[in-house]
Simulated scan of single mutants.
Amino acid sequence: MKEDVKFNDHLRELLEQLPKGAFLTVKDDQDRVNTMTIGWGTLGFMWQKPVFMVMVRPSRYTYQLIENAKDFTVSIPLNKDLKKALAACGTKSGRDIDKFKECNLTPEQGKVVNSPIIGECDLHYECKLVYQQVMEPALVDPSIKKLAYAKGDYHVMYYGEIVASYVKE
């Protein structure tokens, strides 16, 4: 059962879990599906809309998909230990393996968007892409450059209007 919640109802749980990992899942216009682990993101309110911002490097397989998609989902494991799946989805490429099969993850149809949710997770955000921005290296603080971009592999930021948020029981 999927119980609708306000986008910020589980903010504490989201912010505690996100650094440990969450699943960003995308289905593109050619029906290719992939999930990847994210540890960074922002939940907020912009343009009079609830928004989830995720970051994807162009070197990632998910980048190819999200560039040809209209939406994405973020699935947060709260009650089930998915450390192994999060580790695999953060280190292996969907170009080479079927992460769903490899990690025993179930892609499930969400409520609104085309991209699936991860069935084993508890908290879900379905997002419609509303804006994207390539990071401008000259504007990044030097300490962040050194920490996260030593190889020059800057992220693209994707802003998704949260069109559904719910917990799965």
Rank of each mutant, 00 (worst) to 15 (best):
V134H: 10
T91W: 01
V33C: 05
D122E: 10
L11A: 09
V56P: 01
I144L: 13
Y63R: 07
S59L: 09
D28V: 04
V74N: 13
T35F: 13
D29H: 15
K84C: 08
Q64I: 01
F100I: 02
E108Q: 14
N68M: 04
G119T: 04
T37P: 04
M157V: 00
N104S: 11
H10W: 15
L123E: 02
N34E: 08
A150K: 12
Y154H: 03
F7H: 14
I117H: 09
K6I: 05
C127P: 13
E3K: 15
K6G: 13
E126D: 08
G90V: 00
Y63M: 03
E3M: 11
E108A: 09
P77S: 08
L129F: 12
K168R: 15
I144F: 14
L15S: 09
G94C: 03
D96W: 01
E161K: 05
K27V: 03
V51M: 13
M46C: 06
Y154W: 07
V56G: 06
Q48S: 10
L78G: 14
L78N: 10
A164S: 15
L123P: 06
E161S: 07
A164E: 10
L65T: 03
D141Q: 12
L82Q: 01
Q133L: 12
H155Y: 01
W40R: 02
V130N: 02
G44V: 03
A87Q: 04
I97W: 10
L65M: 11
V130K: 05
K151T: 03
E67F: 07
D141Y: 12
E136V: 12
V5F: 11
V167E: 02
T73H: 12
E3L: 13
T35R: 15
K101M: 11
H155K: 01
E136G: 00
L139C: 04
L129D: 06
A88S: 07
L147I: 02
A138V: 05
L78S: 10
Q109N: 10
H155F: 01
P116K: 09
V163R: 13
E67R: 13
Q30R: 10
V130R: 07
L65Q: 11
L123K: 11
V113R: 08
G21F: 03
S93I: 00
P77W: 04
V140N: 05
L18A: 12
K6W: 07
T37G: 12
D153P: 01
L86R: 00
